[in-house]
Structures are given as structure tokens and as C-alpha cells.
Amino acid sequence: MDKGWVTNAIAVGLVGASYAVEGMGSSALRSAGLFALSGAVTNQLAIHMLFEKVPFLYGSGIILDRFESIREALKSLIMEQFFTPEKIESFIQSQEKKIDLTPIIEETDFTPAYDALLKSVMESPMGGMIGMFGGEALIAKLKEPFLEKIKASTIEISQSESFMNALNTHLHEGSGAMTDNIDSIVTARLAELTPVMVKEMIHTLIEEHLGWLVVWGGIFGGAIGLISSLLL
């Protein structure tokens, strides 16, 4: 079962249990349950709003709205990090028939792609709301799985038949012409990515790695509610 909904159920259970208890304990349980539910649901909604348009909530669906800028950032990263004329020329000289760019891709720092995604989200109208609930830390756990996914996709592009045919055909035509051909191939492959595909990919990672964000929202909310009931 999804841990976010489990957290919500526990919070609702605390509220229900408060009506079976008398005295100060009733108020403490009710406050803890309501605050826990508020914290968990708010974090759940913030994560949901990254990917889906929510009626009357301006700034929701930022991944879909900023899809073009994310795709352009990926293209720039791919071309500028390892498909430069210098790196291509180096591989041409060392391998004549088949070039395997996997080692270079494995060593490439894909952090700029994540930074572009993070910047797009934080500069969006929803950035202020995210800032209220942890800011950049809200999606920090997305970084490593996101970078691994992008690296795997880039390796797949470099090993595709069209890519290898272009490299072999233009092996001795010079790195400048080859770079142009690679640019065209990468552009064509990235054009196959749709907003829905990117949304589903990142959404899967969010659910898998940030589910605890909802749990901790409930825990901290419950703690705040309990402390508030004891102080008032």
C-alpha cells in the first residue's frame, strides 16, 4: 500500500480515536491527527501539482508547462559534454569501425540537466508554494534516480542503429561535419520524447523515492499539533 495514504489513514485514525478519549488526551490526539493530516496532504498535493494541472491552482503542472526548456537543456548537455569535435576526433583516431561512447557517458556529469529541471520548477509560479514546504529539498531525492535515467537514455541513443550508422558513414569526414550529423540525430531522438513520457518517467521516480516526504510531513505535523495542544 502507498505509504502516503497509510499516513493519511493513521492521521484520520488519531482524530477518530480522540472522540473515544476524555479529558486533555482527547484534545491532544485530535490536534495531532488534524495537524498530521494537514502536513501529509499538503506534501502529497505539492508533489501531485508538479505533474498535473489542478483546477483553480495557478502554477500546477509545471513539468508539462516547462517540457520544452527541459528538453532543450538535455540537448545542450548531450552535445556540449561529450559530442564535442575534440572528443569525437579522439575516438575517430582510436577506433576505426565502431565507436563505443559508453565509457565517456558513464563518466559524464549530468548534474546540469537536473539543475535545469530544478530551476524550471523553482522559478515557476509554484516555486513559492514548494518553498513553504522544504524548497529545493522537496525534490532533492529525485536527483540521483533522474540522473541515472538520463544517463541510461543517452547510452541508448549512442548505441542506436541510426547513430552508429552516422558515425561509421562519416568516420573520416571530419569532426565538424560529424558533429552536425550527431546534432540532427540527437534532436530527432529527443523530439520523440513527449511531455507525457517525461511526466510519467519523473512521476514514477517521485513516487518511488519521495513517498517518505508525505510520511515525514504527517509526523512533523502531528508533533506540532501535539505540542500546540499541550501549550494552549
Rank of each mutant, 00 (worst) to 15 (best):
L117M: 12
L190T: 08
L77E: 05
M122T: 01
D183H: 10
I227S: 13
I92A: 06
G131H: 11
E96Q: 10
A152C: 06
T194G: 11
W212R: 03
L193G: 02
K143I: 00
I157R: 05
L230R: 04
F220Q: 09
P55S: 14
V6T: 14
M129N: 11
M129V: 14
I219K: 00
S26F: 04
N43M: 08
D115E: 11
A116V: 07
L232V: 09
G25E: 05
F146I: 04
S120T: 08
I155H: 11
Y19D: 00
T204C: 13
D109W: 03
I155F: 08
Y114C: 10
S69Y: 05
S94T: 06
P145L: 01
L37A: 15
G218H: 05
E89V: 00
G128W: 03
Q93S: 14
T84C: 12
H48N: 09
L138W: 00
F67T: 06
K119S: 14
H203L: 11
Y114E: 09
K151E: 01
T102L: 02
I150M: 15
K53Y: 06
F91L: 09
V186H: 02
E192S: 08
M178D: 11
N8C: 15
A9I: 13
I78N: 01
E192W: 01
A166N: 11
I157F: 13
G218K: 02
F146W: 04
F35L: 07
I155P: 08
A177L: 13
F163E: 06
S38P: 00
G61A: 03
S38V: 08
L226P: 07
